[in-house]
Every structure is written in C-alpha cells, then in structure tokens.
Design a protein around this nucleic acid. Structure first.
Lengths: 340, 340
DNA sequence: GTGAAAGCGCTAACAT
DNA sequence: ATGTTAGCGCTTTCAC
C-alpha cells in the first residue's frame, strides 16, 4: 500500500486522521497541548502515510534551522578530522545537523560565510581561515553566534575557544631543553594563522629564557602538511646544506612526522639519537609505532564542549557574547622522539 | 551606518530601491528578466542593507534546498576523509552544501536518514552503514535520489558507485602469489559491509586458482581500524601462537599499517622479508616512509564524479534510476611491502 | 484541548 | 520588463 505520490504534508495527515492541520503540527511538537488519544491517532496516521515533518518549512516561522555550519580548512591534518567527529557527536545528539563547508587552506572564509548566511544556520563554528570584521558584524547583526575554533582574530569581537598554544609551545621547548637540545629548528604552518604563530612564540620565549635568541632558531615553512614539512627539511638540510639542529619542533604532528621521515628515510639520521623531534596535537598517528612522537596534546573533546557552550544554542534570543577567549591547556605526552 | 536590527528581507530591499519585492527576487535569480539598470539598483540597495537571500524560504517554493546529505561512518579511516574532500569540492563548486551525518560504525543509517528527510535534501550519499528497504522506498517516494558510495545492498534498487572491490582483491592476491607467498591471512573489517566481503572474495578466488583453498586463509577481524588490526594480529600470532603466514592482506590500508606495526614493532619481524603486507585504498599514509605499502588504489576522485552523475542534481524532476551499479577498477600501486 | 486564520520570506504564474 | 497575487508547509496567536 504505497502512499500518495509527491510530498505528503501535515494536511494529508490531518485529513486522514480527521483533525485539523494544527493538531498535526502539535503532535510533532513536544510539550504542546494535545490529548494523548489524539496524538496517538495522528502519529499512526502519519506513519501510515510515511509522513516526515518538513523542518525547512518550520524554520521559516520558528527562525531556527537546527543546523550549525562548520567551516573546515585543512582536512589533511587529522586533528581537524578529530575535531569534526567531536563536534558532530555532540551536535547530532541534540538534534542539530552540521552544514559542512570546506575552504581552501588559508583562503578567506568570507565567501563561504556568505553562503552560510543564506542557510540561516543557528550558529557558525570556524575552524579555519580568516574572518573579516565585516563578516563578523554581519553575523552579529543577524544574531548568529560565531565561535572561532583554535584561532584568534585580534581586534575582532568574535568569541573563540583554543588550546593555549603559547603555553604548549613553552611546554615543548622545556622538554627539549631538558633533554639537552641547544640548537633548534621549527616547522611552521600557515604564517597568517595565529595557531602557528602562538606556538612558535611560546616556544621561542622559553628558549630565550635559556639564552637562546630567536634569531638562532631556524624557521622552516611546512605548510601545515606532511609533504610540505618533508620537503622543507630536505631543502634546508640536504640541498642548502644547513647544519641539522639538535631538535626540531613541528608546529603540528603531521609536519613533525614529515620531518622525521625526511631525516630518517632520506638522510639516514636517527631519532632521537641524532635529532629530537617534537610535535603538537597528539593525533592518533603520533602514537603509531614508527613515530612514537612526543607531542603536546590538544584537548579536542573539551574544546568541542566549550565551543558548544559558547554557541549557546539553547538560548536563541540571548545577546551574543562579546569577545570571549577561552584557552584550554595542552599537555605534554611523552613518547620516544625526545629522550627523557 | 548599521542596518536595521533583525532580519532584512527582500521587502526591505524593495522598499529602499523603490521596486517591487519580486524584482528583488529576480535580481538574485540568474537568468531572470530584469533590466541591467534595475538589477544594479537593487544590488546596491541590498549591499547597503547587508541583505542576503534566505534560501530556506526559497526552497519552500522551489522544492530545492541545494543541500545534499552525506552519511559518513568511519572517519577513522582516512580514505573517507579523502572522499569527503572530493565530494565537498565538487558539490560546493556547484553551489550545493553538504549536510554531514556521522553514524556509529556499522550502525543502521535509518535514524540518520529519518532526520535527513526532514531537511528536504536534494540527494543523499551514503558512504556507510546499512540501508533498509523501507528507507530506500521512502526516499524514492519523495523523489530524493540516493546513491551508495562503495557499498552494494543486494536486493535493493538503490544505485551505487564502488571500486571493483572483488577485482581489487584479485589484483592483490595476484601480486602476493607472484612474490612467492603461499600462506595467507586477511584482516577483515565490518563483516556486514559488502566492501570487506567483496575484497576478500576476489582475493580468495584468485588464491583458489593457484590451489589454495579458502579454508587455508586465516581470517582476522580488524574492525576496519589500525588499533583493531594491531590487536588482532598480536592475538593470533603472539597470544595464540599461530604461525605467521607469508603474506597478510589488509582489507584497507589503515589495518595493513596496524598489522605491519604489530609485526615489526612488537614481534620484531621484518616487512617484506619475513611477512609481506598488502593494503587497499591508497591513502596518503600508505606512502609514508615507514610503511611504503603496496596497495590497491581506489579511484576516489572518479568515484566522486560518478556519484554526482548518478545523483543527477541538475535534473530534479527526472525519474530516479533503478539499481545502477557502477564499478570502477582499482589499480595496484607497488611500493615496498611486497617484493617485486 | 482544538480549530481557524494569519503569517514566515520567498518564487512563480499571471497580468500588464 | 515589471508589479500583483497566490501559494510553499509549517507554527502560532486567537477564539471557542
């Protein structure tokens, strides 16, 4: 017994159940006043017709779409896959769907944001790219909360959650110093990203405390990816013949892994005997046997929790918070790429 | 000069520009008849008000949301991240957004699908989990095209695109046989997934042609993940003391890598000298120096292309295809985990 | 508790 | 080319 062709609407259900269309609406709205008997009647009619409420139509009146946009940049970095998973688990559980946008690495998210706005999402989570102040205020005007994930935009009043990247950088410098390293190289990612800058900043600061000037740190551009780091290391230490330092700090694990493989696989060095390597993120791969990378763990799950708290989806009307900046501490995870 | 608080609608723009509301609508609809002058006028008024068309409202009449649902299962498997990226790039380019759903591995997607249906998506791409026939027909009734990505549901009339998994399995068996292997183990993933079954099936068939019966192949459950494969290998060859075979075939690269690390890292064996290892997918990591995994490449990009072709988003009204099943050939990528 | 009626912001005939 | 009008499928007053 196939139902009517085309969409079946609450009208059809109402007709079949012999009630008004608004009753059908109530039957699907938890907490609305409707007698249990009538609700049952309606629900069974609905099932018979394979009726599914059209949430697009309802959001027109409720002004809530139950969709949140997640702007993703670098999916090549497994950390952001972790983040997506953490966010998805939490959001789906509360009945919110994720509208995913991927943007070219380092690209401005403005155009992505423009498209997002058309969809009247209930909130926006930015894990990537820059955000212009014009966009911030457009979202603000519409009452759409925006939260920056692991990035900070100076001068912006957008709120954000991030790992305490500078402190994490210090943690790593400290570990390396304790292990006896005296010369250093750093693999940086997107130079415009605050994440990379902050980690380097904290790292350099701690080194300076031990008398190592920032100018003594070799800065390499790894473009945030394995391949980029691999190439940068080879270029510096093989092609250009620079001296391999005691330690290399990869601003993220993927780059640390790329560096490690270039050093070991191509140049025949040993880790940590010839070079120590430190990473950041603590992605799953960092624990794989060939790497056993000592790294700074980012508390992805907690960061996701805080992100949703800032989004405050349960309080639609609420005035959007000013520039709250939540910093969660990272934690050093000792493995084998730095001797202890 | 801040615009009006609250949402600004096409009415506001019309008022400011001194035109009718429908003119505004036309100004934002490419190819509608409107004089260039008026269009300019409207566009500038819109910009002044920071107006962004509400696509939720428009989809109510157009019956198109420009959203496609992508149901994702195992994001732990980097191959599906690749797939998501490929899909996102293509979809976004044509102005279609992705509604992402993650479901527990192996779980039924029925409830996810139910939620998807509320959003009136223009199409559904299922890269994971099972799909009941009831769901298939519900989508069918609504005229929502569904395409299965790398899975096949026997008896279902849903269309799908997949790598020729059986042929890929044969390719791997062939390579292993040529390299001199005579005893085998296979790391399987979700036993309910056709992908895992098909690859094993093809693998076993080819082996049989060389006189190796299926019963001689040791089947291990690796749950499709690194850690699962790692544990399964240790359990079989260390705890239970089974004899390590000449070759191990990981139904996907992640599992092959897990097996490799268990064998080398824990048991001290060498690859490929002591054990050969083959994978499937050709994820980026397969090429990393410590692995250099010989594997069967899945043509992810082409698969994404075919998926979108089947979805046929440009022909909304079109009758949904019956059970088309597109199989794209995999390709053996030789690296170092199988001697040549 | 329940129905009637008025929108939500837009598109799509239909006029002109 | 442009304005007028009638919905799209739902939620939400407002009566009863």
């Amino acid at each position: 017994m196939k139902p009517i062709i085309g969409r079946v609407t609450s009208m059809d259900v109402a007709a079949l159940a012999g009630v008004s269309q608004s009753a059908v609406s109530r039957a699907f709205t938890p907490g609305s006043s409707l007698s249990a008997a009538k609700r049952e009647l309606i629900l069974s009619a609905a099932k018979k017709l394979n009726y599914v409420p059209n949430s697009i139509a309802s959001s027109l009146t409720t002004r809530r779409t139950n969709m949140v946009a997640v702007i993703l940049g670098n999916l090549d970095n497994p950390f952001y896959v972790l983040v997506l998973k953490a966010l998805a688990a939490r959001l789906q559980q509360r009945g919110t769907q994720i509208l995913t946008f991927t943007v070219e690495n380092g690209a401005s998210s403005d155009d992505a944001l423009m498209r997002v706005l058309r969809y009247q999402v209930d909130g926006i989570i930015l894990t990537s790219a820059q955000l212009s102040t014009r966009m911030t205020s457009m979202c603000h005007d519409r009452g759409i909360p925006v939260v920056l994930f692991n990035r900070y935009i100076p001068g912006s009043d957008a709120s954000g959650v991030r790992c305490d990247n500078a402190a994490g950088g210090r943690l790593m410098a400290d570990a390396l110093l304790k292990a006896g390293a005296r010369s250093f190289a750093v693999l940086k990612g997107d130079p415009r990203g605050s994440t990379s800058q902050d980690r380097f900043q904290g790292f350099a600061e701690r080194l300076l405390e031990d008398g190592i000037p920032r100018s003594a740190i070799l800065e390499l551009e790894g473009q945030s990816i394995y391949r980029g780091a691999h190439a940068a290391v080879l270029r510096a230490f093989q092609d250009e013949g620079r001296k391999v330092p005691d330690a290399i700090f990869g601003i993220n694990d993927t780059m640390a892994m790329g560096a490690m493989d270039a050093l070991r696989g191509v140049m025949g060095l040993r880790v940590p005997d010839d070079v120590m390597i430190g990473g950041f993120d603590n992605i799953d791969e960092a624990d794989y046997w060939p790497y056993r990378l000592t790294t700074v763990r980012q508390p992805a799950e907690e960061m996701a929790d805080e992100t949703l708290k800032l989004l405050d989806l349960d309080n639609p009307g609420a005035e959007i918070q000013p520039g709250i900046d939540i910093k969660l501490p990272g934690e050093l995870v000792w493995r084998d790429s730095i001797p202890r």
